[in-house]
Amino acid sequence: MKKLNLDYKQLPLIATIILFIIMYAFGSFRYTGFFSSQVFLNLFIDNAFLIIVAVGMTFVILSGGIDLSVGSVIALTSMIAASLIMNAGLSPWIVIPICLLTGTLIGMGQGALIQYFNLQPFIVTLAGMFLARGLAYVISVETIAINHPFFSYMASGRIPIWGDNFISPSVIIAFVVVVIAVFVAHFTKYGRNVYAIGGNEQSALLMGLPVARTKVMIYTVSGFCASLSGLVFTFYMLSGYGLHANGLELDTIAAVVIGGTLLTGGSGYVAGSVVGVMILGIIQTVIVFEGTLSSWWTKIAIGALLLLFIVLQRVIVIRSKTKKGIISQH
């Protein structure tokens, strides 16, 4: 039975995993020091924030929507955190909830607009993107460096795993988020409703599923993930800045797509997005190790990968359509 389930829809995910292995092997053979467990763990440390935001985005894309506001929400979160900690001198235990609440409320507002006024997710989250980044600038156009023991600990804290290898506290946060997300996606009603809406929203409605509530929830969760990611990003950068995470929404969408989630919705896995993030991470690592390559090659490589996976998805959709065509012609 399990074997039957492993059909063409999982092809992108399998391709992603194989690609990751190939890239990792390539890096290991080419560069000395690449094949070390710490380099591997660094992928997680450097991309913990991206994993978190990609998890939220996965649900959005699974439902057939898109959230362009995540990068800006990260920037806004970093600004709020930095200004409240440094300028207002508040305790992190007050600041962190405020940050999370801000992102969550932005997400909820976007979800409500999308659902109740039947606006396109694309355009609403575009407005959210402007709004969040604008608000970040309103707080300050300058970088605010953070100098606070808690943040410093979160930034440089090392949690040993084995031998000399370590991870950062952020990795733990990302890991918890992923585990919860996998559970939600596969073992809760909410998670399944997301898939149903992505498959056929009209049907979901007629099947009596709480489409409105679920859709608002999806964007709320994405907003929450973005602000959580913003905090992790702030730990990582130890500063708040309106230009932080510029264009990150694209990286996130790319990670989700490369991770095998259909952009039309209804098919994909949270775990896939994690692998997608890892692939983006390994591209950067390769470029760092290569030394002579410039950073823009990252963009070109991501673009090429996007192309590869989008065409792959397209082939799958065409294949499943012809298959359906034959079925309906009994």
């Binding site: 399944r192 149903a196 498959g199 056929n200 049907s203 099947m207 209804g266 098919s267």
Partner: peptide
């Protein structure tokens, strides 16, 4: 048919 073809029968 108002079902979701991307989900399993049982679902």
């Amino acid at each position: 048919v108002n079902l979701c073809t991307n989900l399993s029968v049982v679902e």
